[in-house]
């Protein structure tokens, strides 16, 4: 029973959500919207579980000075630094949390991480296009040839720019 009831609930609501896709009736739409709101509420509770997971694992390591505890400490401090102002000042645009913590701190950090992808691409490309056998030489030759052919058909950007700037 402990196993069957959750499966039954999942089945009923799952089938309903599939069926409502084909039924445009307002009554059905209303029920579907309500179910989706319930799902959002349930998902929001999962953040409590996630936060508890972060604090339990990292907090314990910091407390008993486990391996890499300094990194964990930074994580715990950053966690509270984001959560507490967010709870008190809100996260809407224009608030201190959104502007200083998210837009001016987190976003540049994430962008830096994204930009570092260029170095990873370079190292991966170096390995991928190394001429170690006939197949890789052919692949590289094809790539260079197709690039040269497509470039020869493109308009020269600098000429376009010069033409437009001189009127």
């Amino acid at each position: 029973m402990k196993r069957e009831i959750p499966i039954l609930i999942t089945l009923v609501f799952g089938v309903f959500m599939i069926v409502q896709f084909f039924i445009p009736h307002p009554v059905v739409n209303e029920i579907a919207n309500r179910l989706q709101n319930w799902a959002i509420i349930v998902i929001s509770f999962s953040y409590v579980l996630g936060s508890a997971n972060i604090l339990r694992i990292n907090g314990e390591l910091v407390y008993r000075r486990g391996p890499g505890w300094l990194y964990k400490l930074v994580l715990v401090i950053a966690f509270f630094l984001m959560v507490i102002p967010g709870m008190f000042f809100g996260i809407a645009e224009g608030t201190w949390t959104n502007d200083y913590l998210f837009t001016y701190t987190y976003v540049p950090l994430a962008s830096t991480m994204y930009a570092s992808l260029a170095f990873y691409i370079a190292s991966a490309a170096f390995r991928a296009f190394r001429s170690k056998d006939v197949a890789s030489i052919c692949a590289r030759g094809y790539r260079l040839g197709s690039d040269a052919w497509s470039d020869s058909r493109k308009p020269v950007i600098w000429d376009d720019y010069r033409r437009s700037s001189t009127g």
């Binding site: 998902i43 999962s46 953040y47 579980l49 996630g50 936060s51 997971n53």
Partner: peptide
């Protein structure tokens, strides 16, 4: 895990 919902 990348999603809090995935913890459980």
């Amino acid at each position: 895990l990348n999603r809090a919902f995935m913890v459980s």
